[in-house]
Design a protein around this nucleic acid. Sequence first.
DNA 1: ACTATGCCCTGGGTGC
DNA 2: TGCACCCAGGGCATAG
Length: 273
Amino acid sequence: MPELPEVETTRRHLEPHLIGRTIREVRIHPGGERLAITHSPRELERELVGRRLESLGRRGKYLIAGLDDGRCWVVHLRMSGSLVWRKASDGAHAYERAWVELDDGGTLRFNDLRKFGTWHLVEDAVDAMPNLGPDALSEEFSAPWLRAQLGRRSIAVKSALLDQKVAAGVGNIYADEACFIASIDPRTPANRLGPRRVGRLHAGVLEALTRSLEDGGTSFSNYLDGNGDEGLHRIHVHVFRREGESCDRCGSTIRKIRLGGRGTHFCPGCQRR
DNA sequence: ACTATGCCCTGGGTGC
DNA sequence: TGCACCCAGGGCATAG
């Protein structure tokens, strides 16, 4: 599942291949049509051809390519998507949904087993991501901001962390990891956390994201970075998908429950309500 | 304004 | 071996 560290790793890998390049051809393959949100697949192919790529940014889990006509090509990988740079002569990945050829002969391949990924072509990037809060690694995502957001929600704190209005880029892996780092039970109502615990949670979010980013992202399910490689972060995960194993911190057995429809992993020994 | 639920999608795993 | 079923979950629509 690509979350902030995985999307940022992809962005860093792709940026040197893309900047200054002009798109020569775009092919959205049969079966991949649903990725096109703002245009029909054929229109989207036509509109992208001939555009020069001027920047590659990211906000939350969205990749944002700035085009020479001022518009933005916004890509979301959702559950199983990857965007990988390849030579044109390289073979297709099993779940390749689209092909983008550049003027130097390089290609971008959009792979997506479960077809949840999206492409928007918009005047302003925010048109593709309404209601998105501050990026979790930006200055705007501060402890006071988190305190204010959690204070007006009664849902479980882990569910609140998944709300992209609260912290753009945090997904299921890092929400669980942040609660563990902060020693907070993920079921605790968000508005019952005091300032000290919110401060710990804020630090936990940053630590979980930053440490994963240093290792180039996490390799669960179908994630591939911009070079087509799996990430390494799995070895550093404290609780995610470790149910039945013992806690790094206290030795208790890690549990898995369902919270807000999501699999949730935590240590019942050292994460407190 | 907030909360809960269902939908989209497909491969892998489980149980019979 | 085959088949039915459930699970994974990000973001959005909808209803309450």
